[in-house]
Amino acid sequence: MLKSILKLGAAAAFAAALLSSGAAQAKLRVAMITSESGLGDRSFNDMMVEGMKRAEKDFDAEYVVVQPRAVSEFQSAIARAAAQGFDIIVGSSFDMIKPMQEVAKAFPDQKFGLVDVGPDPLGPNIVSTVTKDWEGSFLVGWIAAKTTKTGKIGFVGGKDIPIIHRFFVGYYYGAKMANPATEVFESYSGTFTDPAAGKEYTLALINQGSDINFAVAGATSAGVIDAAKETKTFAIGVDSNQNYMAPGNVLTSMVKRVDNQAYDMVKSVSDGTFKGGEVKYYGLAEDGVAAAMDDNNKGLIADAVLADVDTLKAKILSGEIVVPNYFDLTPGQKEMGTPPMATPPSVANAK
């Protein structure tokens, strides 16, 4: 099976891989376009590849992974793949919305998928998904507020963009519901690809007294975890289960099952149910998010807090608790969620 890992800088290798992928035309042919952090991020992209591996096995598919080096290369990467006539091209970045839409217009018969973006339909030949990461972030926010020794917890985002704000608002809501006195610091490193920046921003939060910091920054998150290990504080991982990266110092990870989302996109082409313009949601009800528990973080979270998490999940599923989604908030909004709670300053003070 073809499992090529490509760099756009090697155009000849790219063309050769695409040519070889066409050797068995009967197979379902898939192209996956990574975000700029690429494979090996131990996060979003690596999780998506797990979905591709399962699709390869279950649907006799073969896939090519294309790794643009920058956001500016997204459109050309998608266009090159579209010109090769893959059965579906699956993207993995919020920054890929406009580039994919432009290519999709030029290739109206090509099927596209974009994992974990916003709620708006993207085009008649693009299926997209939304992970209810605000629900998973709510759970880890609750855990953090119930576990902190200092009463101060932090958030280290990658870019200061709406999709990352979704995590923060859920995290903030969970922390404040657990303990209204908890201080929640918000920061953005400006990058998804620089662990050194992640470490620097985390150390700054730790210097302010934050002893648990939620990393939502792609490959940059590795630096958040490294800072926790160095200072004997806690990090919270993101997207994949990152508990193993620093056993004893990763309190939990807010897992996003983007592997399932990528898998389902390929499945829809395989079984003929692909529907362009559709937006599918993956939350607690769909097993789309979770707070990861395993041997690497065993004993770090009190049993009573774990019991709380089970209760909270049930309340979310019943509708008794409605975790706020940043995309539903308006600038200057003073309260959010059910039960209502004051919005974080970054929302309440926005113009």
Score class of each variant (00 low, 15 high):
residue 142 W to H: 11
residue 207 N to S: 14
residue 217 A to P: 07
residue 264 D to M: 05
residue 141 G to Q: 03
residue 141 G to S: 11
residue 67 Q to M: 14
residue 102 E to K: 01
residue 119 P to F: 09
residue 48 M to A: 15
residue 104 A to M: 08
residue 309 V to D: 06
residue 7 K to G: 12
residue 20 S to Y: 12
residue 346 S to K: 10
residue 302 A to Q: 14
residue 29 R to D: 07
residue 10 A to G: 01
residue 211 D to C: 09
residue 168 F to E: 09
residue 108 P to G: 09
residue 41 D to C: 03
residue 334 K to W: 07
residue 55 A to W: 03
residue 291 A to R: 05
residue 163 I to A: 07
residue 110 Q to V: 11
residue 141 G to D: 05
residue 319 G to M: 12
residue 150 T to K: 09
residue 203 L to A: 07
residue 146 K to P: 02
residue 284 L to R: 02
residue 207 N to R: 14
residue 208 Q to I: 03
residue 151 G to P: 00
residue 219 A to I: 00
residue 54 R to I: 08
residue 161 I to P: 06
residue 62 E to G: 04
residue 209 G to E: 03
residue 270 S to F: 12
residue 11 A to E: 15
residue 280 K to W: 02
residue 252 T to P: 03
residue 338 T to E: 13
residue 305 V to T: 15
residue 222 A to K: 12
residue 140 V to K: 00
residue 173 Y to K: 06
residue 86 F to L: 02
residue 260 N to G: 11
residue 169 V to P: 08
residue 14 F to I: 01
residue 117 V to K: 03
residue 344 P to S: 05
residue 175 A to Q: 00
residue 347 V to P: 02
residue 186 E to S: 07
residue 271 D to A: 09
residue 322 V to A: 11
residue 211 D to S: 09
residue 160 D to Y: 12
residue 166 R to I: 14
residue 330 T to M: 14
residue 278 E to L: 12
residue 321 I to Q: 06
residue 299 G to R: 07
residue 269 V to A: 02
residue 88 I to F: 06
